[in-house]
Write a protein that binds this DNA or RNA. Structure first.
Lengths: 232, 232
DNA sequence: CAACTGCCAACTGTCAACAGTTTTATTGAC
DNA sequence: GTCAATAAAACTGTTGACAGTTGGCAGTTG
């Protein structure tokens, strides 16, 4: 048996499509032509269709009959709705992590945070932080919950959905430093092994993220209106 | 335009399969033969495959290459993990509902509860309560949250997953009356428009459900062990 | 010049057939 | 009688082709 890569074509198509979608290579709302994608991946339309079906089940693409599949496009309200879900789920994950995390695990988190602090300093807290560091931090805590279904839901489904919405990094200038402090508070709560405090620390963090985005969205809406008025 | 039912074959197959799975007609862990299902639905394997793909994305079926799709089977630990997720999400839904629910909405909930109380009395609180009433109650609150993504996640994905695990109703004897009281407490918190209280009331309710199931599972495990010993 | 009608190309939905793998049944040996 | 090996049956993965629908383009008409 040399076929260690016994993945089916549909599997590979699924992975490639998901990667292309969350990376933004396939823009939100873009129509996916089956024939084109089939040529691009070098496979037939059958497996491709199955892959698209799976993505549809994951809410990453939507379909309308005879017109074709499109990448799910998230309205600003949808993004905010997802943040309420994140607050609930990551709060729970953080509570569980506080009860289960090993001393070594906490040290790892602190090391990660120290690295982020450096990066945040270097970049004056703009893009990088949100892109990689924040992500990793939340990932680790989700995994530390020890709840596999919760971890999969957060890291697998929810985060790929969140990435569909590409907010301009300018929306978040100045948030990085605050967020870093909130991460410190979370680790402190984790170290105390207090589930209540850990959950509340995480929820406050995500709540603040949400209000920050809400504010940015309002400002963006105002700008758009002014621009619209100017054009007219 | 008389073709209001422009559903595709794959859509119908998806609906029928999902219904068959959550109703238990297709048992958990059962292997799904594509040819058999295609004959049964009177369609070809193409659309069927796509429907199965969607269910796979929804985590209702799992696939292994060249062996075929099987209905996802939930271990007891998986069930408990789902209850932690429920606690987080429904707690959040209840908080949002407390802030948004109209007076009329609260009256509807109370009416529903009164109906359940009658049914619970009649059946001495065994099967019916859990099967319909509890479900409806939680559904309504999820919808009242006003958060569409949250509602879909709870009512669409999570509940169909939960139904995969068919606990014998005997596991829950005596829980019905307690649960009814907990529902009353939830409504009381909703009426007070206090998000914190509403969230905590719902979380306590689901936590109690979980501990009740944990206890029942432990007892069932002991019984199984004794039975196993007797057989040997 | 604008709007409507009819046609055409492109695409999606569906199917039947082929290739490779797994499972089962049969056969033979010990 | 049991076990192993081989062959056949059944099933999944994949493909290419066909039918029905959608959207756009050109031509025509008011």
């Amino acid at each position: 048996m040399e076929k260690l890569v016994s993945t089916t074509l549909a599997d590979r198509a699924f992975d490639m499509l998901e990667a292309a979608i969350v990376s933004g290579e396939l823009a939100a709302g873009e129509r996916l032509s089956e024939a084109m994608l089939a040529r691009r991946f070098g496979i037939s339309r059958g497996p491709l269709r199955e892959a698209i079906g799976r993505l549809e089940g994951k809410k990453l693409v939507e379909r309308t009959t005879h017109i074709g599949p499109r990448v799910t496009s998230l309205a600003p309200e949808d993004l905010l709705e997802l943040f309420y879900i994140r607050e609930a789920l990551e709060g729970m994950a953080c509570r569980l992590a506080a009860e289960k995390l090993s001393a070594a695990g906490i040290l790892e988190l602190e090391a990660l945070l120290a690295e982020q602090a450096k990066a945040a300093d270097v970049n004056a807290g703009v893009g990088y932080f949100q892109a990689h560091g924040d992500h990793d931090f939340h990932f680790r805590i989700a995994e530390a919950s020890g709840n596999r279904k919760l971890t999969n839901l957060l890291c697998g489904d929810l985060y790929s959905l969140l990435r569909l919405y590409r907010y301009r990094s300018s929306l978040r200038v100045g948030r990085a430093k605050t967020a870093l402090n909130e991460h410190r508070a979370i680790i402190k709560a984790l170290r105390s092994r207090n589930g209540d405090k850990a959950e509340e620390a995480m929820r406050a963090h995500i709540r603040n993220s949400r209000t920050s985005i809400e504010k940015a969205l309002r400002e963006a809406a105002v700008d758009a209106k002014e621009l619209d008025g100017a054009v007219k």
